[in-house]
Design a binder for these strands. Structure first.
Lengths: 171, 171
DNA sequence: AGAGCCATGTAAGAGGTTACATGATTAG
DNA sequence: CTAATCATGTAACCTCTTACATGGCTCT
């Protein structure tokens, strides 16, 4: 899901063929730092995106080179990408991959939305922190407290990071 | 993987049949708080554990109740469980589920190993913190710094939590 | 009479990993 | 001559999620 939206994000800038897209995820690139994507999986994702009508393709023949399929984003694809870029993730574990991808693309594709995305994500994390603090106040079992404390520590760290990100990313 | 070891952990205390095991993961229990396990998947996991020779089963017939398969851990299963209980996890994301399961079972099955497990896990997290700090010192790109800072914040929070856990769990 | 408990599973589908398959061209 | 690059995919195999299938018993 998240990776497919990232592919939409790459195609939103300009059409590309599959091989070019795999290069964006090659070791050492920023995207590879966030998500792994093997060439084999890329073509499978593209197939799904075409089936959903978010991507269209056209074959380009070349001399002395294999033919390539030029992929471009459709109007429905743009609608979907825009929806995705505005929505924060609701599970803490999705911040590592999906939220970072949103942040990566929102900055270049819709810079004016960046600050709002970060703010909404921080709102969700803060609400979760509050909820965990409430649960912790009522919990008496040592081990369950330990579990809650871990989640609390992680979410507090994310809130602090997002607060800092607002200033860095929001210019 | 992690959930299968948790099932081994439950069977290490005493033999159980499948239905009893599903109850251990029912909503509201401590285990359900760490990991989700639907009945359907439980039987699939048990099948795998039997194929590996870590669990053996014996059918028990009952009057006026469906027959049940009593599951018990084998000697090889105990060896595997012991190995698993001693090893910290090496990816940060596995702490949420797999490390918590290890912690849950090591406390009751091998309490003397608890402090050592927490210490080793903290060692790994600290090493990762050091590595991230090194990368951050050399990174100039704003966005990549943001990614590194998030990972750093998360791992620092875990180190602090593990430090606190030593005192709580190690008695 | 109907809801829920006991007790076991299968089946279908989504998602990811790893490896393999093809075959021409260009650079060292 | 060998390795890397260009360019596409398939196939096999895990894991997890969700839903369904069965059928008797107990409690209200």
């Amino acid at each position: 899901m998240a990776i497919e939206h990232a592919l939409l994000g790459l195609l939103a800038e300009s059409p590309h063929h599959g091989y070019e897209l795999t290069k964006q995820f090659a070791p050492g690139t920023t995207l590879a730092d966030i998500a792994h994507l093997e060439p084999g999986m890329l073509y499978a994702h593209v197939k799904k995106l075409e089936q959903r009508g978010w991507v269209a393709s056209e074959v380009e023949h070349q001399e002395s080179r294999p033919a390539r399929r030029i992929l471009s984003i459709t109007p429905q694809g743009r609608v979907e990408l825009d929806r995705w870029l505005r929505e924060p993730v609701d599970k803490t574990r999705d911040i590592r991959l999906e939220f970072l991808l949103k942040l990566y693309f929102v900055r270049t594709l819709a810079p004016t939305l960046t600050a709002e995305l970060v703010r909404e994500q921080r709102g969700l994390c803060e609400a979760f922190v509050d909820s965990l603090e409430g649960q912790l106040a009522e919990e008496t079992d040592d081990f369950r407290r330990l579990v809650l404390q871990m989640r609390l520590a992680q979410n507090q760290a994310l809130v602090a990071w997002l607060r800092n990100a607002t200033t860095l990313v929001g210019r």
